[in-house]
Simulated assay, not measured.
Amino acid sequence: MLNVNSHNPWADLGLAAPPPPQAAKKELDQAAFLRLMTEQLKNQDPLKPLGSQEFLAQLAQFSTVQGIHSLNSTFQGLAAAMMDTQALDAVSLVGHDAMVVAERFGYTGGGIEGEIGAPMAGRITYEISNAAGEVVHRGALDANRPGYVPFAWDGLDAEGKPFPPGEYRIAARVSAGDRTEAAVPSIKARVDSVSLTSQGIVLNLSGLGAAPLSAVRRIG
């Protein structure tokens, strides 16, 4: 078998190897566009020169593309700056209480507080059930007008014994005459930490888990 030792002929001559060929650009940048237009003007048919309107149209087309590219870059920078600002604002929420729209919550004892959003004036009724779907508490509130009405649950049964920790659910509705509509409950929870995800800023809440910043109705 013939063994061929690979060697670098450029090194043998004391020269540096030429750089590898670069892949052809798929996009026409400003310098390439200007060179192309210069060659077009130099090699145009003298009997049919490029008209001023056509020349200006090409310039306008390139300017539009460049403008869109610059605008996209500006918007990307603006979005990044807004994200940084929101992140700093969200970090300042750690340790504070937040009123968060939620139908499920992790109960650890000591009761809960929250609000129920009524779409109209009327009688609000709500139920709290455990993970098995058993109703452990029923309550009623009066909404004098559309808006939020506070509620509280002490976490005790009819005999005054505390319910065990676990996952619970709250459902609410408001009735006025023959009309009944769903009401939106919110739970008060402490902000433990903040996460920055590809979907945006997420608050990690005690008893509620992760919730997007958009689910927070009020802080404090």
Rank of each mutant, 00 (worst) to 15 (best):
G109A: 00
G117D: 15
V101W: 12
G114Y: 08
A118S: 11
G95H: 15
V101G: 03
H96K: 13
D97A: 09
V101M: 11
V101P: 00
R104G: 05
I112S: 05
G114P: 03
G122W: 15
I112Q: 01
M99H: 03
G111E: 02
V94I: 14
A98S: 07
T108Q: 04
G117M: 14
Y107Q: 07
A102N: 14
D97P: 00
S92Y: 14
A121S: 03
P119L: 05
E113R: 11
G114L: 04
E113L: 08
A121Y: 08
E115P: 01
P119K: 08
M120A: 00
P119Q: 03
L93Y: 11
D97Q: 12
G110H: 14
M99A: 04
A98K: 04
T108C: 00
V100Y: 01
M99R: 10
M120G: 01
L93H: 10
D97L: 10
V94W: 12
G111R: 13
L93I: 03
G122Y: 15
A121N: 03
H96M: 04
A118N: 11
R104T: 10
G122E: 14
L93G: 02
V101S: 07
G122D: 08
M120I: 03
I112D: 03
G95Y: 10
P119F: 08
S92I: 13
S92F: 11
G114R: 10
G109K: 12
G106A: 08
A121L: 05
H96T: 13
G117F: 14
A118L: 14
A121E: 08
G110Y: 08
I112N: 02
E113P: 00
M120R: 10
E103M: 06
G117V: 12
G111V: 06
V100C: 01
A102E: 13
E103D: 12
A118F: 13
G122H: 13
I116L: 10
G114H: 10
A121V: 06
M99W: 14
V101H: 12
I112F: 06
A118D: 08
Y107D: 03
E115G: 01
A118M: 15
V94E: 10
L93F: 07
A121K: 11
P119S: 00
I116A: 02
G109T: 05
E115A: 10
I112A: 03
V94T: 12
E113V: 03
E103K: 14
G110T: 09
R104A: 07
E113D: 05
H96Y: 06
G111M: 08
G111Y: 08
P119E: 01
Y107P: 02
E115V: 04
D97T: 06
G110M: 10
R104Q: 15
E103C: 03
F105C: 01
G117K: 13
A121M: 03
A102Q: 15
R104N: 14
S92K: 15
M120Y: 08
G109E: 06
A98Q: 05
D97C: 07
M99F: 09
A118W: 09
P119G: 00
G95E: 12
Y107A: 02
G111N: 03
V94A: 05
G114Q: 09
M99E: 11
G122K: 15
R104H: 14
G117A: 12
I116T: 02
H96S: 10
I112T: 02
M99L: 15
D97M: 09
I116V: 04
V94P: 00
E113N: 06
E103H: 15
G109D: 02
G110N: 11
G122I: 13
